[in-house]
């Protein structure tokens, strides 16, 4: 009997225990768990699980860094400037600086408006970027941050990579199940780390950043 760990949130599927709440009897082998079974904590698909005895480190892939991009000192796009300003606005609010928060918000809105017309593409294009982030973006960034012991950067990378993996599995589930994935259920986004949850019952805490679920906000159909 083996155990399988969710690479997103750390939930462990134990073949001995099964998942009786979701109709998986104790003693069910991993290969007999239905393909549409998902992680009870974070909704990740079976493919996101790794067998526990296996080395936890992901297999090292050849890292394709897009050289010219990494080498040139790049200006931020309007969209990035907007995200910088909206985050600084949140930073001001945390320090009870309401005037400054309002001003950064104003800047964030301005840059968001002028950058929004540039978005073109479908879910497929988003999927391609998600795959690229997972295949090269994070594998390239992680060792760079680890090399200089940049704890803050590593933290952001760990959270972001988990959220991106969840997004990847949601996109592939939607690709297969289409609208039936979303029918009669709810979608939530963690306001702290961006974790997306599709389901009826929220976990008590965000499986990625561990914030209590009052910070996980429902996205309404509109």
């Amino acid at each position: 009997m083996a155990k399988y760990t969710c690479s997103i949130c750390g939930y462990v599927y134990d073949e001995v225990a099964g998942d009786p709440d979701r109709g998986i009897a104790p003693g069910t082998k991993w290969e007999d768990v239905p393909e549409d079974w998902t992680c009870p904590l974070c909704g990740a698909v079976k493919a996101d699980f790794v067998e526990e005895k296996r080395n936890k480190e992901p297999v090292k892939k050849d890292v394709n860094v897009v050289e010219n991009e990494a080498d040139s000192m790049r200006e931020m796009s309007f969209g990035e400037v907007s995200a910088l300003c909206s985050n600084l606005s949140k930073g001001c609010t945390k320090q009870y600086r309401s005037e400054e928060g309002e001003l950064f918000s104003q800047l964030a809105e301005f840059y968001k408006t002028i950058s929004s017309n540039a978005g073109e593409g479908g879910l497929k294009d988003i999927s391609l970027l998600v795959e690229q982030d997972l295949a090269s973006g994070y594998p390239a960034a992680n060792p760079i941050a680890a090399d200089v012991s940049d704890r803050g950067a590593l933290r952001a990378l760990v959270w972001g990579e988990k959220v991106t993996r969840i997004l990847n599995s949601i996109l592939s589930r939607y690709d297969k199940q289409q609208d039936s994935l979303l029918e009669g259920t709810h979608i939530y986004v963690c306001d702290i780390c961006g974790f997306i949850y599709i389901g009826d019952e929220l976990p008590d805490i965000c499986p990625v950043c561990k914030v209590p679920n009052k910070k996980i906000i429902e996205v309404m159909r509109g």
Binding site: V66, A70, G119, G137, A141, G160
Partner: peptide
């Protein structure tokens, strides 16, 4: 490396 990832996220946000 962080800004390069952020650039990708912003593209996804806009799409």
């Amino acid at each position: 490396s962080l800004l390069s990832l952020a650039e990708s996220k912003i593209k996804q946000e806009k799409m």
